[in-house]
């Protein structure tokens, strides 16, 4: 498998005024292969989101190297796209205009981007809602728009920051299944940050478990479950075994820090 993302000894410390500095990431090294689905779990404040934001190019690390296909990441780029936890839809834009955002910023011609956005809206099961505003949609539909928007620019890497955390349990299950289908079809590299062990185990090729303060990698667990995975698989003993392995590693972190 060719390497897609490479983080080498990445470190970042926030130094807010009048407060103690916080080390968000320390000596963080990770390699992710092309088309791989990697989840990151860890206690709150362990730097999961910071890692995504560095990958996205919104913040720069103090130390270390973050590379995409062998080139250093210096800023945002169309080869990466993020799906945000709170959806991040522009409330003054219709579904269609929201999905078009990335293409518009890329300078893609109107007719082409409209065509492309419509395609993705249909794929996301949002046909008929093109001219609705975000406030008229349910949480699940909003995140479908978020996913369609991220896929519109056809990025190589899909970054997902607890994308389903704000959804109810059933919608969440549904969206996870849909995401697996999309991933299977598009072969994107996915970095998926979550709090849910079950979600991480169900979706991923590998699960990265982080420790809190300073945020570093504690252990990486490879998921051996066959694909395609379905809901029934979640009831199997192997799946539960995997969940308890992840939990055992994570548990110490949660209990230690309390």
């Amino acid at each position: 498998m060719t390497t897609c993302i490479q983080a080498k000894n990445v470190g970042l410390t926030f130094r807010p005024k009048n407060r103690e500095p916080v080390t968000a990431l320390n000596d963080f090294s990770l390699e992710v292969g092309q088309g791989e689905f990697v989840s990151i779990v860890g206690p709150s404040g362990c730097g999961k989101s910071t890692f995504l934001n560095i990958l996205l190019g919104l913040i720069k690390p103090d130390t270390g190297l973050m590379q995409l296909n062998g080139a250093r990441i210096t800023g945002p780029g169309q080869d990466r796209a993020m799906v945000f936890q709170e959806f991040g839809l522009l409330p003054w834009r219709t579904v269609l205009a929201n999905v078009e955002l990335g293409l518009e910023l890329k300078g893609v011609e109107f007719s082409i981007r409209r065509h492309r956005a419509t395609e993705l809206i249909n794929m996301a099961g949002l046909a008929g809602f093109e001219n609705h505003y975000p406030h008229e949609l349910s949480g699940g539909m909003k995140q479908r728009v978020g996913l369609a928007r991220a896929l519109a620019t056809d990025p190589e890497v899909l970054l997902m920051d607890e994308p389903f955390a704000a959804l109810d349990a059933q919608t969440r299950d549904l969206m996870q299944a849909e995401l697996l289908q999309v991933w299977d079809r598009t072969k994107k590299t996915v970095i998926f940050v979550t709090h849910s062990i079950e979600e991480a185990a169900y979706l991923s090729d590998r699960v990265v478990i982080m420790s809190a303060r300073p945020g570093r990698i504690k252990q990486i667990i490879k998921v051996q479950l066959p694909r395609p995975r379905d809901y029934e698989m979640r009831l199997s003993p192997e799946f539960n075994d995997l969940k308890s392995r992840i939990w055992d590693v994570l548990k110490e972190e949660l209990i230690d820090k309390k």
Binding site: L56, G57, L58, P76, G77, Q78, R80, A81, M82, F84, E86, G88, L90, L101, G102, L105, K106, T153
Partner: peptide, 11 residues
């Protein structure tokens, strides 16, 4: 958040 969204798409 919305500012970051637009920035992340290269705005």
């Amino acid at each position: 958040l919305l500012i970051n969204v637009v920035r992340s798409f290269g705005g």
